[in-house]
Design a protein around this nucleic acid. Structure first.
Length: 306
DNA sequence: GCATGTCAAGTTGTG
DNA sequence: CACAACTTGACATGC
């Protein structure tokens, strides 16, 4: 079992900076690029630091935040790495990150935000989504990430037709994106059973979010969904990937969708124990939650199997 | 200095 | 038709 941290740290001194299009637009182009250059160098240095830190903590995977290079694909202030004064140092940091991750077997992933909707019926939304994915594909190539994980999108009237549109867009993606693209079940629309046969048919690895499955169930058990997902990952020769979180205000009563600070060990699927897989921990206490979960699992594994 | 409002992007559901 | 929710913390601005 390999546990993953998502994007940020709670206590460790690793930080990422960002900026807004609005504040950039108040500057002349050269000062925009100067500012972006500083932020990108800061972020690529801190990405390397993030990997050193997860390695020290015994965490085996890291999700890289989408705005590592902020506003790179923005229509008004977008830029290329070659435009930045610190381009060489930035590229160097990315390369050091790639080498460190490979040497220490740290699995890296990306998870574009909700506005990346490849299946949208609106061509402009699809075009923007492709642009954002190509940006993340470039980053993934540079640092050696093997997963770019998206959701199937909205229903837009008909799930089958929407998935059909998603499939039809795939040939328009570069190989860098296509070979890393995965699809995850969500907590509103697409359940594992909506996606598993689609993913299997087109050899798209399926990321199984057990919390979303519990919020948006489909009749499959956690064990069934895990096994079906694992089959697809085996077909493509990669390690099964899952997500876990716990509801902030419990399963009774309120909305279970918001994430809690920590993972309740009772929410950890028994059928995941000891399985060869990557598990991203989506919890607000960040690395503290990953460490706490790993500790509680260790206790389970040391205990005799019932 | 500290508090508060703002931030590119989509989709769905509610009022 | 308009707007909040999803989710989210760092930045920018204003006091």
């Amino acid at each position: 079992m390999r546990f993953g941290l998502c994007c940020l740290f709670k206590n460790e001194p690793v930080s990422f900076r960002t900026t807004t299009a609005k504040s950039l637009l108040a500057l002349p182009r050269d000062r925009q690029l100067q500012k972006l250059s500083e932020i990108c160098l800061h972020n690529s240095s801190n990405l390397y630091l993030a990997l050193e830190t997860v390695q020290r903590l015994g965490i085996g995977a890291f999700r890289i935040m989408s705005p590592l290079f902020p506003r790179m694909t923005h229509p008004a202030v977008g830029y290329r790495l070659d435009d930045l004064p610190e381009e060489k140092n930035i590229r160097q940091k990315m390369e050091e990150t790639r080498i460190f991750a490979r040497k220490n077997d740290i699995r890296l992933s990306f998870h574009p935000d909700q506005f990346v909707v490849l299946s949208s019926p609106h061509s402009q939304v699809v075009a923007n989504s492709i642009r954002e994915l190509e940006y993340q594909g470039m980053l993934a190539d540079a640092v050696g990430a093997d997963v770019i994980n998206i959701h199937a999108g909205g229903v837009s009237g008909d799930k089958f037709q929407t998935l059909q549109r998603l499939k039809d867009v795939m040939p328009h993606l570069s190989a860098a994106v296509r070979k890393r693209l995965t699809i995850e079940n969500d907590d509103i629309s697409y359940t594992p059973s909506d996606l598993l046969s689609f993913c299997e048919r087109f050899s798209i690895p399926f990321i199984y979010d057990v919390h979303h499955h519990r919020c948006n169930p489909d009749g499959l058990s956690v064990e069934q969904a895990t096994t079906l997902a694992e089959d697809i990952w085996k077909d493509v020769g990669q390690e099964l990937y899952g997500h876990i979180s716990s509801p902030r205000s419990g399963w009774q009563g309120g909305n279970p969708k918001p994430h809690a600070d920590y993972i309740d060990p009772a929410d950890f699927p028994a059928c995941w124990l000891g399985r060869k897989m990557t598990i991203d921990v989506e919890a607000k206490a960040k690395e503290l939650a990953v460490i706490a979960l790993m500790d509680s699992i260790k206790g389970h594994l040391d205990a005799p199997v019932p």
